[in-house]
Computed example of a mutant assay.
Amino acid sequence: MKKGKVTGIGGIFFKCQDPGKMKEWYKTHLGIDTNEYGAKFDWKQEDPAKEGYTLWSPFPDTTKYLEPSSKDFMINFRVENMETLVADLKNEGVTVLDDIAAYEYGKFVHILDLEGNKLELWEPND
């Protein structure tokens, strides 16, 4: 079976005092076109027929979504072969925080790195 791996960065999520004002600041000063989730940066994969995107998303500083990490950010990594990757991570002693969840836009699971930073793994349906 093919081993799972990271294929890119799926998103950058971070805490801030006022996500609406933060999105407006980035739109005004850096030209980032934002929506309710943040901003989506589209790009092409090595195979030009395949498109992907990276999401930039500010969260309220009161969010619990980044817990149990005490950090104010979380990186989302695009992965392939999610089930295999998660099984390998568990066998390697990596803390897997939840079960794989499937949605119309892909599969997700959360892990902790060596220093307790929460990472989101995402296998997109693209």
Rank of each mutant, 00 (worst) to 15 (best):
K64A: 14
K2D: 12
L30Y: 11
V86Y: 13
P68F: 06
L121I: 05
F73I: 11
A49S: 15
Y105R: 10
N76V: 05
L121T: 06
F13Y: 14
G4Y: 03
V6N: 10
A87T: 12
F13R: 06
L89H: 08
M82Y: 11
D88I: 07
H110W: 09
D126T: 03
E120P: 01
K118Y: 00
G31W: 12
V6D: 04
T95G: 00
A49F: 13
L112R: 05
K107T: 03
D18F: 11
T28Y: 07
P48N: 02
W122Q: 01
K71S: 01
K3T: 09
P124C: 01
N76G: 02
G10F: 00
L30Q: 03
E123T: 01
D72C: 01
W43L: 00
K21Y: 05
N35L: 10
L55C: 03
I9H: 03
D98S: 13
S57W: 09
I32H: 08
K118D: 00
Y53L: 06
N125G: 04
M82E: 10
Y65A: 02
I75D: 00
V6E: 08
E80P: 04
M22P: 06
W122K: 01
I100Q: 06
M82G: 03
G38P: 14
G106T: 03
V86L: 04
Q45H: 10
D33M: 11
C16D: 03
N76T: 07
A87L: 09
M74S: 02
T95N: 09
L119P: 01
E83D: 13
N91L: 04
T54A: 06
E104K: 14
E123S: 00
K118L: 00
E115W: 10
G116M: 10
Y105F: 13
H29G: 00
E51R: 11
E46V: 04
K118I: 00
D61H: 08
S70K: 15
T7S: 06
S69K: 12
D88S: 12
A101P: 07
V94N: 07
K27V: 00
M74C: 05
D42Y: 15
D61Q: 12
H110F: 06
W56E: 02
C16W: 05
Y105T: 10
E46L: 11
Q45K: 09
P124V: 03
P58E: 15
K40S: 08
N35P: 05
D98C: 08
A39G: 09
I9E: 02
E115A: 04
N76H: 01
I9Y: 07
Y65P: 00
C16S: 07
E115Y: 08
S57Q: 15
D113A: 02
K15R: 15
G20A: 14
P68W: 07
K107S: 11
M1E: 13
T54K: 09
L66D: 04
T54H: 09
P124F: 04
S69N: 07
I12G: 01
L114H: 15
R78Y: 05
D33Q: 14
E36N: 08
L85W: 13
I75L: 06
P58G: 08
K64E: 15
E92S: 12
E51F: 12
E92K: 15
K23M: 15
T62W: 13
Y26F: 12
